[in-house]
Computed example of a mutant assay.
Amino acid sequence: MNYLHAIILGIVEGITEFLPISSTGHMVIASSVMGIHDDQFVKNFEVIIQFGAILSVLVLYWKRFLPDWNFYKKLFVAFLPTGIIGFLVKDLVDQMLGSVQVVAWALIIGGGILVWSDRIFAHLTAMGRKTDDLSYGDSVKLGLFQALAMIPGVSRSAATIMGGLTLGMNKKEAAEFSFFLAVPTMAAATGYKLLKVYKTIEAGQLGVLAVGCVVAFFVAMLAIKFFINIVARYGFRGFGYYRIVLGIIILIMIYTGHNLQLT
Score class of each variant (00 low, 15 high):
Gly247Gln: 01
Met96Ser: 12
Val28Met: 09
Met186Tyr: 04
Tyr3Cys: 07
Tyr72Cys: 12
Phe76Cys: 02
Gly112Pro: 05
Pro152Asn: 05
Ala147Trp: 02
Thr256Tyr: 14
Asp132His: 09
Leu58Glu: 00
Ser157Lys: 00
Val115Gly: 15
Met169His: 09
Ala126Glu: 15
Glu17Thr: 08
Gly247Arg: 02
Ile48Asp: 00
Tyr241Ser: 03
Gly112Trp: 12
Tyr241Trp: 12
Ala232Glu: 06
Ser56Ala: 03
Ile244Asn: 07
Gly83Lys: 13
Ile29Met: 12
Val28Glu: 00
Arg237Val: 04
Ile244Ala: 08
Leu222Asn: 15
Asp118Ala: 14
Ile248Pro: 15
Thr185His: 02
Asn2Glu: 01
Met162Trp: 11
Ile228Asn: 04
Leu107Phe: 06
Ile252Gly: 10
Asn2Cys: 08
Val77Pro: 00
His26Asp: 02
Gly111Cys: 06
Met221Glu: 03
Gln95Lys: 11
Ala216Asn: 15
Thr131Pro: 14
Trp62Gly: 07
Val47Ser: 03
Ala126Leu: 15
Gly257Arg: 07
Lys141Arg: 14
Glu13Gln: 04
Gly25Ile: 03
Tyr242Trp: 06
Gly191Cys: 03
Leu142Arg: 04
Val140Arg: 00
Glu173Lys: 13
Ile201Pro: 00
Leu195Cys: 06
Gly111His: 03
Arg156Ala: 01
Ala174His: 07
Gly207Ile: 00
Thr200Cys: 14
Leu88Trp: 08
Gly204Lys: 01
Val231Phe: 02
Thr256Gln: 09
Leu209Phe: 10
Val12Gly: 04
Lys43Pro: 02
Arg156Lys: 09
Asp118His: 05
Thr190Phe: 12
Ile228Glu: 10
Ala6Phe: 05
Ile54Phe: 04
Val77Phe: 01
Gly257Trp: 04
Val245Ser: 08
Asn170Val: 15
Lys63Gly: 05
Phe226Asn: 01
Ile15Ser: 10
Trp116Ser: 09
Ile29Tyr: 08
Tyr241Glu: 04
Leu66Met: 11
Thr16Phe: 03
Glu13Val: 13
Val77His: 01
Gly191Ser: 08
Phe121His: 05
Lys196Ser: 08
Glu176Thr: 07
Ile109Ser: 04
Gly112Cys: 09
